[in-house]
Simulated scan of single mutants.
Amino acid sequence: MRLRKEAGYKSRKALADALGDDYSERRIKSWEDGVRMLSLKQACDIADLLHCTLDELAGRDFQPVSYSDPRQQALNHSYSLLDEKSKGELSGLAATMTADPSRLAAKSGQGVEDVVDEEGAA
Score class of each variant (00 low, 15 high):
3 L>D: 09
4 R>M: 01
6 E>I: 09
7 A>L: 05
7 A>T: 05
8 G>E: 02
9 Y>V: 10
10 K>Q: 15
12 R>F: 06
13 K>C: 07
13 K>G: 11
13 K>M: 12
14 A>E: 06
14 A>C: 05
16 A>W: 00
18 A>M: 02
19 L>V: 01
20 G>F: 04
20 G>K: 07
20 G>C: 07
21 D>I: 11
23 Y>H: 05
24 S>N: 09
25 E>Q: 08
25 E>G: 05
25 E>I: 01
27 R>N: 14
29 K>M: 11
30 S>R: 08
30 S>W: 11
32 E>Q: 02
32 E>G: 01
33 D>F: 07
34 G>D: 08
34 G>M: 05
34 G>P: 01
36 R>V: 11
37 M>P: 02
40 L>G: 10
40 L>W: 08
40 L>K: 07
41 K>W: 08
44 C>S: 14
44 C>E: 14
45 D>L: 01
46 I>V: 00
46 I>Y: 00
48 D>C: 04
49 L>Y: 01
49 L>W: 04
53 T>K: 08
53 T>R: 10
53 T>F: 04
53 T>D: 00
55 D>F: 00
55 D>K: 06
57 L>H: 04
62 F>A: 09
62 F>S: 03
63 Q>K: 12
64 P>I: 00
66 S>M: 13
67 Y>V: 02
67 Y>E: 10
67 Y>F: 13
68 S>T: 13
69 D>A: 05
69 D>N: 07
69 D>Q: 03
71 R>P: 04
71 R>Q: 12
72 Q>H: 13
72 Q>A: 15
73 Q>F: 12
73 Q>L: 14
75 L>Q: 05
76 N>Y: 14
76 N>T: 15
76 N>D: 15
77 H>C: 13
78 S>F: 14
80 S>G: 12
80 S>Q: 11
81 L>Y: 09
81 L>N: 10
81 L>Q: 12
82 L>E: 01
83 D>N: 01
85 K>W: 07
87 K>A: 07
88 G>W: 04
89 E>R: 09
90 L>Y: 01
90 L>E: 08
91 S>E: 13
91 S>I: 13
95 A>Q: 11
97 M>R: 02
97 M>A: 03
97 M>W: 05
99 A>G: 04
99 A>Q: 04
101 P>L: 06
106 A>S: 00
107 K>D: 06
107 K>P: 09
109 G>T: 03
110 Q>R: 08
111 G>W: 10
112 V>G: 02
112 V>M: 05
113 E>C: 12
115 V>C: 04
115 V>K: 03
115 V>W: 04
117 D>V: 15
117 D>A: 15
117 D>S: 15
118 E>L: 15
120 G>R: 06
121 A>H: 15
121 A>Y: 15
